[in-house]
Design a protein around this nucleic acid. Structure first.
Length: 471
RNA sequence: GGCCCGUUCGUCUAUCGGUUAGGACACCAGGUUUUCAACCUGGUAAGAGGGGUUCGACUCCCCUACGGGCUGCCA
C-alpha cells in the first residue's frame, strides 16, 4: 500500500543563549541546522534561550543575530524569545503535576546541599532524592515549592541519536530534575522541550554536550505524550591543541572571523567540513552543501580548528567569487573594520581590477594589500625596497618610456611589445624593467602583474606615476 | 567519584570485514614565472595500546590509556 501522506516538513532550530558573542561552535551548529532544513525544503527557526535573566543581555542577542546574518544563515520568521513563553512553560509544568508525572518539592537549597554533602561523605551518589517525591499532599507545608519531574527509578532510557546511535542511560543515573523553579520560572530542561514541541521542531541538531540532557528531556516528551524529535548530537569543536575551544586559543567569536577578513562563503564551506564530509568533496558552494548534507555524514569525534585550511578554502572562494559580489563583500568588510569607504575612483579601479588580485589572496586584508596600487593616489609613496629599485639608471629608463606610453594602444599586447623592446634597448631582460615599474606604479616591489596594473589604473595615471618617479 | 561520548597521516577526513588505507590543508622537492603569489608534477606521512571474534579486521566485541562532555531551582 502506497503512503499517500505528504512527507512531514522538516523543522530545525538554533537555540543559543544570549550570554555573549556567537561562538564559532555555535555557528557551526547553526550551519548544520540551516543546511539540513534548507536542503530539504524545511524550516530553520531561531530561538533565543534567555530564561536566565541574570546573564542574558540584549547586546548578546544582537551580536548573535549579526553573526548569523554575516554567515548568511537566514532563519524563518522572527527569533523567538524563550522568556516570552514562560507562562506556557509553567502551564505545562502544572499539567505534568496534574498527570502525576511531576510533584511539588519543598526542599530548600540548603537541604539539597546538605544531602549532597552527606552523600559525598558516605561515598553514595550525589543525585538528589527528594523526600517529597512520595509525600502525602496533606503533609505539604505552606511554602514555595519547585516542581520536579517524577523520573523512573529503574530501567533505562534510550536516546536514539542519528549521530551517536542508541545511547542507553540507566534511570538510576537520572534524578528528578526541577522543571519549574520555586519562583515559578521554568528551567532550561522544561523550556527547550516545550518550545521545541510548540514550534514543531522535528530535528534537534545540537552540540553533544546536550546528549545527557536528551535522556532527561525525553521524559518530559513522554510525560506529555508528545512525539520525540530526531536527535542529532554533534561533537564539539576543539582548539588546535585538542582542548576544548576557549578564548586562550584566540578567535572563538564568529564576528572575529568576519573582522579578520574571511569571506562568509569560505567560512561556511570550512565549518561544514568540520565534523562532516561528503566523500572527497572539499571545496563547494552552499547550494551543493545543502544538497549533500545529511545527518549520516556527521562524524562522532571532535574536530580541531585549522587556520591554514580555513585560509586555503577561503582563498578558493575569493578566487571563485563574481567581481561584483566580491566587491560588495569587501566593502562590507571595510565597513565593519571602520574603513571610511571607497572613493568613486577606487571603486572603479577595484571593480575593473579585482581579476588581477583575487586569485592570489586568501583573506580580505591580503586582497587589499595586493590591490594597494589601485587604492592609492599620487604622489605614490615608495617603501624602502621600491626606493632602492628607483636608482638613477632605472629612472632614466622610465623617463624614456613615458613618451611611447602616451601614444600606445592601451592593451596588454601593445604594452607588452613596448616594454619588451624598451628593456631590450637597454640590453636588459624584462625583469630588470619590471622592478622599477612596480616601484613607480605601486610604491612596492611586490605587486600584481605590471601590465594588469597599467591596464587597471589607465594611461593617464600610469604616465603620471612614471613621471613622478622619474624625477 | 558516577554516567555518557570519542581515538585513521601534523590537521580535516574517506573507508561502512577482503583497498598498494584514498583525498584535502600543511610540509618537502621539481617545474612554470616580470616580483610575491597562484598554478602544475612528484614525495614524506596514519588505523592509541592489548586481548578476542573471523578464513580475513581500521571496520565487530572486551579491557587499558588518553581526550571530551554531563553530573545545578545555568543554559
Amino acid at each position: 500500500m502506497a503512503d499517500t501522506h505528504p512527507a512531514p516538513q522538516i523543522v530545525t532550530r538554533f537555540a543559543p543563549s544570549p550570554t555573549g558573542y556567537l561562538h564559532i561552535g555555535g555557528g557551526r551548529t547553526a550551519l548544520f541546522n540551516w543546511l539540513y532544513a534548507r536542503g530539504r525544503g524545511g524550516k530553520f527557526l531561531l530561538r533565543i534561550e534567555d530564561t536566565d535573566r541574570e546573564r542574558s543581555t540584549p547586546e548578546a542577542t544582537a551580536a548573535i543575530l549579526r553573526g548569523l546574518t554575516w554567515l548568511g544563515l537566514d532563519w524563518d520568521g522572527d527569533a523567538v524569545s524563550q522568556f516570552d513563553q514562560r507562562h506556557r512553560h509553567a502551564e505545562v509544568a502544572h499539567e505534568m503535576l496534574a498527570r502525576g508525572s511531576a510533584y511539588k518539592c519543598y526542599s530548600t537549597q540548603a537541604d539539597i546541599e546538605a544531602f549532597r554533602e552527606a552523600a559525598r561523605a558516605e561515598g553514595r551518589s550525589t543525585l538528589f532524592r527528594s523526600p517529597w517525591r512520595d509525600a502525602d499532599a496533606t503533609s505539604h507545608p505552606v511554602a514555595p515549592f519547585a516542581i520536579r519531574m517524577r523520573a523512573p527509578l529503574t530501567g533505562e532510557t534510550i536516546v536514539n541519536d542519528a549521530v551517536q546511535g542508541a545511547v542507553r542511560f540507566g534511570n538510576d543515573q537520572l534524578d528528578d530534575m526541577v522543571v519549574l523553579r520555586s519562583d515559578g520560572t521554568p528551567t532550561y530542561m522544561l523550556a527547550v522541550v516545550v518550545d521545541d514541541h510548540d514550534m514543531g521542531v522535528t530535528h534537534v541538531i545540537r552540540g553533544d554536550d546536550h546528549l545527557n540532557n536528551a535522556a532527561r528531556q525525553q521524559m518530559v516528551y513522554d510525560a506529555m505524550g508528545w512525539p520525540l524529535p530526531v536527535w542529532a548530537h554533534i561533537p564539539l569543536i576543539h582548539g588546535p591543541d585538542g582542548k576544548k575551544l576557549s578564548k586562550r586559543h584566540g578567535a572563538v567569536g564568529i564576528e572575529e572571523y568576519q573582522a579578520m577578513g574571511y569571506p562568509a562563503a569560505g567560512m561556511r564551506n570550512y565549518l561544514s567540513r568540520l565534523g562532516w564530509a561528503h566523500g572527497d568533496a572539499e571545496f563547494f558552494t552552499s547550494e551543493q552543501a545543502m544538497e549533500w548534507f545529511d545527518l549520516s555524514g556527521i562524524g562522532r569525534s571532535p574536530a580541531r580548528l585549522d587556520f591554514k585550511k580555513l585560509e586555503s578554502v577561503c582563498g578558493q572562494h575569493i578566487a571563485a567569487m563574481e567581481n561584483a559580489a566580491l566587491l560588495h563583500e569587501l566593502e562590507a568588510y571595510w565597513a565593519v573594520t571602520g574603513h571610511p569607504g571607497l572613493t568613486d575612483v577606487q571603486r572603479d579601479r577595484l571593480s575593473r581590477g579585482l581579476y588581477s588580485v583575487k586569485e592570489r589572496a586568501k583573506t580580505f586584508p591580503e586582497l587589499i594589500e595586493k590591490a594597494h596600487f589601485a587604492l592609492i593616489d599620487r604622489p605614490v609613496a615608495a617603501d624602502a625596497a621600491a626606493q632602492a629599485a628607483l636608482d638613477a639608471t632605472s629612472r632614466g629608463m622610465l623617463k624614456s618610456l613615458t613618451p611611447q606610453l602616451r601614444n600606445a594602444h592601451w592593451t596588454k599586447d601593445a604594452l607588452e611589445a613596448i616594454l619588451s623592446s624598451a628593456a631590450a634597448a637597454h640590453g636588459l631582460g624584462f625583469g630588470n624593467l619590471a622592478s622599477p615599474l612596480r616601484a613607480a606604479l605601486a610604491g612596492r616591489t611586490v605587486t600584481p602583474s605590471v601590465y594588469d596594473m597599467m591596464l587597471i589604473i589607465g594611461r593617464d595615471e600610469t604616465v603620471a606615476r612614471l613621471e613622478d618617479a622619474a624625477v
